[in-house]
Design a protein around this nucleic acid. Sequence first.
DNA 1: TTGTACGCGTTATCAG
DNA 2: CTGATAACGCGTACAA
Lengths: 337, 337
Amino acid sequence: MVTMRDVARRADVSIATVSFTVNNSKTVSPATRARVEQAMEELGFRRNMVARALASRRTRVIALLYPALQQRLSGTAVKFFTSAAKTAGDLGYTLVLWPVSNDAEQVTQLTSGGLVDGVLLMQVQLDDPRVDRLVETGTPFAMIGRTRDPSGLTFVDIDSENTTVAALDYLTGLGHRRIALLTSDGDSAVPHFGPTERTRATYLVEMGRRGLDPVMLECGETPQAGRLAADELYARAPETTAVMVLNENAAFGLLNGLRHLGVSVPGDMSILSVGSSPDIAAIADPALTLMVSPADELGRMGVEALVDRLEGREERGNHTLVMCAFHEGSSTAPPRR
Amino acid sequence: MVTMRDVARRADVSIATVSFTVNNSKTVSPATRARVEQAMEELGFRRNMVARALASRRTRVIALLYPALQQRLSGTAVKFFTSAAKTAGDLGYTLVLWPVSNDAEQVTQLTSGGLVDGVLLMQVQLDDPRVDRLVETGTPFAMIGRTRDPSGLTFVDIDSENTTVAALDYLTGLGHRRIALLTSDGDSAVPHFGPTERTRATYLVEMGRRGLDPVMLECGETPQAGRLAADELYARAPETTAVMVLNENAAFGLLNGLRHLGVSVPGDMSILSVGSSPDIAAIADPALTLMVSPADELGRMGVEALVDRLEGREERGNHTLVMCAFHEGSSTAPPRR
DNA sequence: TTGTACGCGTTATCAG
DNA sequence: CTGATAACGCGTACAA
């Protein structure tokens, strides 16, 4: 291995000078810089990130913690990851997906080990054991999503309230009055998932405000469960003309279940899938109309907020909300007269 | 931060003794061990992984490189990741998903920086620039998939040949004689993807051996492309009664396209999807009959092979092939008379 | 069984 | 603008 010492000797300068030129941490005379760079070139020098980390007390690595790895990574999650990784790279960091459960002990071990400078938390629950632990150990972190009381913490999250309002505006704008809501149930990968609870609450309020009757269904996050939900919907509320779905996998099952019931989409029933991603919604037939999860923005802003904290540019408590964006598909239409 | 020195002082032993007890690297008298452990407990000592890595020249971190992150992570890839991570954990390593493109330079920077001990390569192309680079820099690595000439390299891969034979055996066993093959085209995320090319070659040989006429289609990895493939299939070979698909996303489009053509599945046409995962195939209606990618095994064996190399237990050149397993669905049936 | 002393490759401090 | 020199926290021969 070629060390800085080798380079220094070859360029006939001190180790410190080599460090300065490599890191641009101090001004170096052009002549000296040239000599050093030539020496590095000739020797094939590559700096040792571990030594660098030990000396500077930072690895420039950020860990993305995604607990729900037992299932497939949704298109949304991947988009998020990709965007976050790119942003991190632009800011001089490396972001890696670190597979830990939401066991607090594992999280502690990771962060206090010094291998990562900070942590980005995905799939945050309303009461998340990881968060308490991170606060305790003083690890810099930012959340995608938020706990029940996120004051003093840094997070970016989906603006479920306004997204729900927009979704209902869209459906009522088409003329629908019988609008049901299908979400995940308590057995989902992330129990007490903020967006689910906030969407349900907002849905109730908004339906009431519009003088409409709410119909709320919930089911597991599988196509099979979605299919059963179709049956349940027809048993409980056969008059329904539109369903707002916050459960990507179930949306497919719902669609198939309706077809088997002889219900045409969007002729007899409109379906609006909230929080999914276009590429996966395209699998459905007809292609689903969506409120697209702002994965790119969330990833970018999450990393930016975290790096701000890492570099001391910000006190704690940066909060940002982003709405889902409407994406036209073929699963919605005005209700039949 | 609590260092070993602090612990040593508190327990009134030397730093070395603390290290021995922590790592079980030398026998320590029970009395001393107790004192040290108590001191660690009281001080809340957590060892610094970076310093440990610098001194021991190993981080015990393995990077999983997955280049095709521009799109969604298939269920197969996630299963693979999960299984690999678990295996690594059992062996005393941490496996992280490191988002690098398949740019060779980035790979070099990562591995020569010393932050990871070894690399697991996914989505290996038949001619993969990353592989040459890793060989050059002497980085320990193992591949999931293989290059055109993998002699001397360590890999685990899908046994495409035997899987294809099994798939054709199954379909001919049902009575099908007109069997088409739909794969990805050259514009896919991973060009010159080994399984695709090997499956196509084997398909040709096997169809010939059975005295059947081959029909090969290829299309992009999207539902839309799969839909067009349905049209093409009916234009080119309307007599076809079964399709073997090696293109998960297109399989959905194919299914929908056929329905719109008035072709019932599996009544008029059987579909067998090779190399996908059950959870995602369940989205389809009818649920797809599969040859399931052995993601768990591949992940486990890949990590095991890599760790063997990392710990010098093995020379280079461990090769392992695993077949896809049959998984009953509702998209296949005997052909109509 | 325990302790000493040095090495790992870089960064930070402070003096020139 | 440049260069010694001391950390940084831990692993490990080697000595006791």
